[in-house]
Design a protein around this nucleic acid. Structure first.
Lengths: 136, 136
DNA sequence: GCTTTATAGGTGTAACTCGCACCTATAGTA
DNA sequence: TACTATAGGTGCGAGTTACACCTATAAAGC
């Protein structure tokens, strides 16, 4: 991975508070979009990602295509080529039953994570509670 | 990285919905604990991590110590050895002013992420909206 | 015909992270 | 003398990511 660029701190600062589009978050968004759209393909998903992404970084084509292939090899989506219409052929993806279940699991995981983060934010903004010396 | 073990899917399934303790989440929790405790050291932080971690995976010692070193090289914490007392010496860490600001940035980032996740969960559990064929 | 643009789906690779195993050392207790 | 709790690490292979780069089809402009 090349040095992650953080909008807050610039390069040469190994910070990740910018939160790159790590595949952990690309994956669930792809699953959700496929559920909402019924079927779709890479190029089309890329355009919709921006509106549904969990972070505000732009999605990375390479990650998206590789995520789709991985989801297929895991049985969460299936695909077939569509050559009709104008322009190059599209690989049309669709959720499998297993993929729907996987999306539900992601919802459980992210719900839990979301609550933890809310708690974190509350604690972090609390005006520096009583300083307890590290005990031993 | 060795194959991540996912409690839901077992090994040999490259899934990350188990969410390992990636340093992106270890870092903010360390910053928060240092703010709450005033000062602390690696071994002590490790014990407290479980109660404040954003995910429910156990923290990894190696990641924790490396995170502390990285935070110091970035100027977010500073440390000094404490040899008094019984047992081996402890490297005592303390937030710098910059570290406090960095924690506030993390709070902003995680607040935004938390809201995105809540929206995701709501959408994911919506009973499969009207299937709109991919347009082009 | 030829070039440009929009669409579509990729691959190669270096830099980086992570998880596990493993290591050293101090002080108190059995 | 051995064992346990405490404390702070390191080595490294396997996996991820960001960026650059590639091929190809069809339509529109010249």
């Amino acid at each position: 991975m090349r040095k992650r660029f953080c909008a807050r701190h610039g390069k040469d600062y190994p910070c990740s508070c910018g939160m790159g589009n790590l595949y952990r978050f690309v994956e669930p968004v792809v699953l959700l979009l496929l559920k909402m759209k019924g079927t779709s393909y890479g190029y089309d998903l890329a355009a919709d990602m921006e509106g549904h992404a969990l972070t505000d970084t732009t999605i990375e084509k390479g990650v998206l295509y590789r995520t789709l292939r991985r989801l297929e090899s895991n049985g969460n989506v299936k695909s077939e080529w569509e050559s009709e219409g104008h322009g190059p052929a599209r690989r049309i993806y669709k959720l499998t039953r297993q993929g729907e279940e996987h999306l539900e699991e992601w919802a459980d995981v992210l719900e839990h994570l979301s609550k933890s983060m809310t708690r974190f934010v509350r604690d972090a903004r609390k005006p520096a509670g009583k300083k307890v010396r590290a005990t031993r």
